[in-house]
Design a binder for these strands. Sequence first.
DNA 1: CCCATTTGTCGAAGCGCTTCGATAACCACT
DNA 2: AGTGGTTATCGAAGCGCTTCGACAAATGGG
Lengths: 335, 335
Amino acid sequence: MVKITDVARHAGVSPSTVSYVLSGKRSISEETRHRVRESIRELGYRPHAGARALASSRSNVLALMIPLRSGIAVPVVMQFAVSVVTAARRHDHDVLLLTQEEGEDGLRRVADSALVDALIVMDVQMKDPRLPLLRSLDRPSVLIGFPADADDLTCIDLDFHAAGAVCVEHLAELGHREIAMIGSPPEVYARQTGFAQRVADGFTGAVRAGGLTGDVLPCEATADAARALVGRLLAERPGLTGVLVHNEPIVGTVVRALRAAGRRVPEDVSVVAMCPDEMAEHAEPPLSSVAIPADEVGGRAVDLLMSKLDGVAVPAATLLPPTLTRRASTAPAAG
Amino acid sequence: MVKITDVARHAGVSPSTVSYVLSGKRSISEETRHRVRESIRELGYRPHAGARALASSRSNVLALMIPLRSGIAVPVVMQFAVSVVTAARRHDHDVLLLTQEEGEDGLRRVADSALVDALIVMDVQMKDPRLPLLRSLDRPSVLIGFPADADDLTCIDLDFHAAGAVCVEHLAELGHREIAMIGSPPEVYARQTGFAQRVADGFTGAVRAGGLTGDVLPCEATADAARALVGRLLAERPGLTGVLVHNEPIVGTVVRALRAAGRRVPEDVSVVAMCPDEMAEHAEPPLSSVAIPADEVGGRAVDLLMSKLDGVAVPAATLLPPTLTRRASTAPAAG
DNA sequence: CCCATTTGTCGAAGCGCTTCGATAACCACT
DNA sequence: AGTGGTTATCGAAGCGCTTCGACAAATGGG
């Protein structure tokens, strides 16, 4: 394995000079810099990550803790993970993957052993047991999601409250007066996963503000449950003409159940979904939807972390505005 | 940050003794060991990962490169990742996440910088550009998937050939004589992604061996394409009574298209799928299926890597036998 | 009871890098 | 010519751990 002294000898400089060429922390003459770079290339030199971490107390690795629980849509998690990795690489960092299962001990382990410089935590609960730990850690962290008490913590997420409201407003603009929201499974609300509740609140608030009628119905993520709920809904609310679905796995089923019940989509009932764009595009009909901008959230989370590592102050809360994409599942209310 | 000398002082021993207590590489008296452990606990000592890596030339980190391409089912990838992380933790290792996008350079980077001790690569193509690199690296690796030329490489995967055959045999046992396989999108075959081709080969071989008729039809992963294909299939092959679907996103659509065309499932047409169990269970009707045992593959991949790191020889190829789970989508052929 | 092991512990070297003075050379003003 | 300030480079210390050889004490076989 070729090391920094080999490069130094080959280039006729001292090891420290090579180090400074690499880090740019001191000025090096154009000529020397070039010569050192050539030597690095020729010898195929790669700094030893451990040695570097030891000497600089920077590992250039971020930890990402991902959820693996029911009610969390897997493709969305994956999208986050990929966007975090991609963004981290842009900043010359790598990503260590932790599962929620590892919990607080896992976070403490990688932080205290200096395996990672900073942490990103997904799927934050309202009262998340990891919060005290993250506060006490001497390394920066960013939460994807908002807990009840976010003091001293940096959080980022889609503005779910606004997202719920935007969907209602879209339906209201189209003239729908009687609507409903088919939500996530009951356990997701019970767990106080912030985002689910926030969508519901946004929905309810906008319904009230717009003088509409409509309420929130949690639903298990199974086809049976979805069909049953749609059946009940249509029976109890004959005047219903708009539905918001916030439950990825069953969006397709809901539309099909509406059709099976003789309601055309979008002619009789407009449907708007909160789900990944890809899913909305491939549905039949393509669904008007608000997507979670996973790429942007992941990228921004990394940017925030980098700023914190550089000692730059960052906003405590970042809420990304929702974007509703109109597709073929929503239309003006009849009459 | 408390370090090994602090622990040593606290326990009244030398730093090397603390190190040996931690690693178990030399015998330490019961009493000393206990005392040292107590000190570690009291002081909350965590060895510095970088220092450890530098001194021992072991980082205790594995690299996992995941695919992010069309035609690869995201939930399956996620399952692999989680199982690899979980298995790695059992061996006291962590996992660094790389995306396919990083390619050979990414692998070389983390390997040469000693950031990781070993590598796991997913979604291996028949002629994968990463193979020469992996062969030349001085660190062990395991491929999830089988390339055309696997010499000198350690591979593991579900036995897709057998999986295709098992599905045919299941249908044959039920008395079906005229069957078809709805496969992955054309580009997946074009890319020579081994597993897709192997399922098709296993299917074809078993069809021939069983004296059945049946062929393989690639299909885009969209509802439209699936419906069109089912329509064509039923028109051209009126005697068709069995279908194997190897294309996760459209399994549901295929069943619905069959029903829409007046064929009951399973009474008129039996359907068997290759997809995650969860998907098969939640389908309507629950589908007889062969799942990719992602947990086992991931776990075994890590075990193989650990053996290689310990200098223990391992089999070059590990093929896991497929398991077909009978559910409600297959039934004996009428008559 | 002596020599040969084995067992338990220590000290020191060294892993490969970064970083902190120090120094020398150069420049631009007085 | 002397002062002060850059710019470019070097040498040495040190990051926190593992590991190797040395050694003292305990053990056992003849």
